[in-house]
Amino acid sequence: MAGRYKEGVENIPIEQIADALFPEVILTTVDDFLNWGRSWSVWYLLFATACCGIELMQFGGPRTDADRIGSVFRATPRQADLMIVAGTITYKMASRVKLLYEQMAEPKYVISMGACANCGGPFWYSYSVLRGIDKVIPVDFYIAGCPPRPEALLQGVIEVQKKIKKEKYLRAKKSEAGG
């Protein structure tokens, strides 16, 4: 923190003063505060195309319970922060994937779930399957498996949370605006 010492109170860190005066007050940066809020409300777009979609359902179901880390499904891309591409994407579908991604509001994250979304998986030899969604949209995390277990997907969302917590969101925006 830049202003560690306040005028008139010599050599006492501001945190100690705050702790002494108002024990229920937490001091933090605005970035950390925003990221804290964002990381515990990662709402994902319900985008289930194939087998992985069932594990995605069970990810939101009672055992894995994505709700406990603040993730709930949204049916529309406008309200979602995270796009979990669960399942095979064919060429016929690929343009829709791109469109849905573009409809999401910034900042947005993408998890590629399962072998098909990662690279085509068992359908590598198919004439109609897109071999990896990273050819169409940028991907943050890849989850291996055919299909991955819901626990693996939960870990993926936790990784997204970690990524969000590290971001300097406000400062990045300022520098972008300045430059």
Binding site: Y91, S95, W124
Partner: peptide, 17 residues
């Protein structure tokens, strides 16, 4: 390559086989 009629999406379909 696969190309949508409006040119919105162009993907190379080549892969080793």
């Amino acid at each position: 390559e696969y190309r949508t009629p409006d040119g919105y999406l162009v993907v190379k379909t080549h892969r080793p086989d």
